[in-house]
């Protein structure tokens, strides 16, 4: 097969490693990390533009290096080529290899912030995406000094604690080792960040098998949604996570 992969750049290292070994020819397009931060309609618009641009003769399918991603993939339409999407809430399913493993870990460790090499080296959204982000639009990424300038000293402390202090939403950092690290750099950075925030630290082994099947062309319905041409992705709110429905024009 000849496949085109459209993936979030947070998967850069993993995807490149897998594509090198794929039995198929896989062309590759990365989109910037942080689309989930601009809201579902903004993310969908950009994904659809990427799909539409890639929907050209010669490919057998478009494969997506995305999960539901805060509903950012909901509404995505397959034009003339089928779209293949792993079933998962977010990229942690892709890194951990299955949504059951992710759910289990999630339930057992509430308030975990996951880090991978991609999340570390491409961690902060920059430039235009940052401007468009929900955080930016709601004043969540203002510094304390900016808050003082806009709202006065009294309100600044209150707003900082309420809106801008992101540390209160998490208790733990978990580093997912995808097995591609050549040294302990990323692991050490993750551990240091946990220490700075005074959070618990855990490290687990990643599992490339789900992404491998995506790139190797093995797409059982249990783990992948194949969206036929003329159909779109819908959220199912159950364990399937996503389904395809015919586009009503």
């Amino acid at each position: 097969m000849k496949l085109k992969l459209i993936a979030c750049e947070v998967l850069y290292r993993e995807m490149c490693a897998l594509i090198a070994r794929s039995p198929h020819q896989v062309d590759l397009a990365f989109l910037p990390k942080g689309l989930h931060d601009i809201g579902s309609s903004g993310m969908l618009e950009r994904l659809q533009a990427a799909v539409d641009g890639a929907d050209t003769p010669g490919y057998d399918a478009l494969i997506m290096g995305y999960a539901l991603c805060n509903n950012g993939i909901s509404g995505l339409r397959a034009r003339t080529l089928p779209l293949v999407i792993p079933r998962g809430h977010d990229c942690m399913t892709l890194f951990l290899g299955s949504r059951s493993r992710y759910q289990q870990y999630f339930n057992d460790n509430p308030g975990t912030y996951f880090l991978t090499p991609g999340w570390i080296e491409r961690g902060e959204s920059a430039g235009e995406l940052r401007q468009l982000s929900i955080q930016n639009r709601n004043g969540m990424d203002l510094t304390y000094d900016q808050l003082v300038a806009r709202y006065g000293e009294d309100n600044a402390r209150y707003l900082f604690d309420e809106l801008c202090d992101q540390t209160k939403h998490y208790r733990q950092i978990t580093y997912i080792n995808m097995g591609l690290d050549t040294d302990s750099r990323f692991h050490d950075l993750a551990e240091a960040r946990a220490r700075t925030n005074e959070w618990k630290f855990d490290a687990v082994e990643g599992d490339l098998s789900l992404l491998e099947r995506l790139v190797f062309g093995t797409w059982p319905d249990t783990d992948f949604l194949v969206v036929p041409p003329g159909h779109q992705v819908v959220t199912t709110y159950d364990d399937r996570i996503i389904a395809a429905e015919a586009v009503q024009e």
């Binding site: 709601n138 004043g139 707003l159």
Partner: peptide
Amino acid sequence: YFVPELLISAR
């Protein structure tokens, strides 16, 4: 008005 204004008015 945006979220910070809502918050300080409610406060």
